[in-house]
Simulated assay, not measured.
Amino acid sequence: MSETILVTGAAGQLAQRVIHHLLETYKVAPGAIVAATRNPEKLAELANKGVLSRKADFDDAAGLEQAFAGIDRLLIISTDALDTPGRRLAQHKAAVAAAVKAGVKHIAYTSMPAPDNSLVTFAPDHLGTENAIKASGIAYTIFRNAWYHDNYMHSMPHNLQGGKWYSATGNGKVANISRDDCALAIAAALASATSESTAYTLTGAVSLANRQIAAIVSEAAGKPLEVVDVNDEQLGQGMRGAGLPGFIADMLVSADANIRAGNFDIVTGDFTKLTGRQPQSLKDFFVAHKATLTAAGSAEGH
């Protein structure tokens, strides 16, 4: 009997790719996969493939325990409840407690690189969740996902239109990785049936500063892009002026500050260790998304 794997946040982009790789890359039987989300009716496509679906609301502790019943391996994908300080950590702790009560054998969790040494506004959520998982007594796999290549797609089309990228990262470097590569590595670990407790930091193969990134974007898009150095306050004001909610602007400013401080300058071989592959380079990612990068009239990233 194969183990049952439950993936939370199953309507979200990362979860969709994890489930895709479980099914297509690692050939896990659809009936051994449970996709869980607040609105299971959104999962009709997965249901058609034979994947089971359950309702899981992170604000409903009793419901979570029900959702996790009979599950061997649980992947908790961090929630998007960032607008209210403390809410996301409370949700994650509720999920860990429900996993203990439900008798889950292994917990996997999507964290971030070096959450204990980070200026990013949501780092305490990740650190607190990691600590709750470690205190649960359940075997665990923690995936510390680096900043996604995909995150640039929110703002780069707009930046390329004006030819300017306002950045507060200074000379700091970041080793981006694609969301799909993170999903591939997570699926590899979930499908491996490992019982040891470990943490992986999933990064790209190279760490890059903003001018190196700008050159790669510029080449892929065939448009010039100049980096304009700004401070945190200027960056935050610009984002708020562009209509971003305050908590999102603060989060993005904190991410730039974290890069500037050198805290995202981490390169590991964990992706290759898990998958046997090389991570997709930023250049290849941008080339693959050239149409989006160069789309006329692209909206400011929200």
Results as ranks from 00 to 15, higher is better:
Ala146Lys: 08
Leu235Gly: 04
Ala114Pro: 11
Val104Trp: 01
Met156Cys: 07
Leu52Glu: 10
Ala32Asn: 15
Thr121Tyr: 08
Ala108Ser: 13
Gly238Leu: 07
Asp125Lys: 05
Gly170Tyr: 01
Ala249Asp: 01
Lys55Arg: 15
Ala242Asn: 05
Ala199Arg: 04
Arg211Ile: 08
Tyr166Cys: 00
Arg87Asn: 11
Phe285Ile: 03
Leu127Ala: 09
Asn48Leu: 14
Leu119Thr: 15
Trp147Ile: 14
Ser155Trp: 12
Met156Tyr: 09
Leu89Val: 11
Ser197Asn: 06
Ala108Arg: 08
His289Pro: 07
Phe247Arg: 04
Leu43Trp: 09
Ala99Ser: 01
His302Met: 15
Leu282Thr: 05
Ala67Asp: 04
Asp60Ile: 08
Ile33Asn: 01
Arg260Val: 15
Thr79His: 06
Leu46Phe: 14
Pro245Ala: 07
Ser197Met: 04
Ala97Val: 05
Leu6Gly: 01
Leu89Phe: 12
Ala220Thr: 08
Leu75Ser: 02
Leu119His: 15
Val217Pro: 06
Ala291Met: 11
His21Cys: 13
Met112Ile: 15
Ala215Arg: 00
Leu274His: 06
Met1Cys: 10
Asn231Ala: 08
Gln278Phe: 09
Lys283Pro: 05
Val104Ala: 02
His154Met: 15
Val227Met: 08
Glu130Gln: 09
Ala187Asn: 02
Ile138Asp: 13
Asp80Val: 10
Thr292His: 14
Asp83Trp: 08
Ala189Ser: 13
Cys182Val: 09
Ala188Tyr: 00
Ala191Ser: 12
Ala62Gln: 05
Ile266Gly: 09
Asn176Glu: 11
His20Tyr: 13
Asp59Met: 06
Phe286Tyr: 07
Arg179Gly: 10
Ala193Asp: 06
Gly301Asp: 04
Ser207Lys: 06
Ser178Cys: 09
Glu24Thr: 15
Pro124Val: 04
Gly50His: 02
His21Lys: 05
Arg88Cys: 13
Tyr109Met: 02
Ser136Asp: 05
Ala35Ile: 02
Ala67Glu: 03
Leu119Gln: 13
Ser136Met: 06
Leu6Phe: 00
Val120Leu: 13
Ala221Thr: 02
Ala69Leu: 04
Leu190Lys: 03
Lys49Thr: 14
Leu190Ser: 09
His289Gln: 12
Asp116Val: 14
Ile77Val: 12
Gln13Arg: 14
Ala220Met: 03
Tyr148His: 14
Ala47Pro: 03
Ile107Met: 01
Thr275Ala: 11
His21Ile: 12
Leu82Ile: 03
Val227Leu: 07
Ala47Glu: 07
Leu22Thr: 12
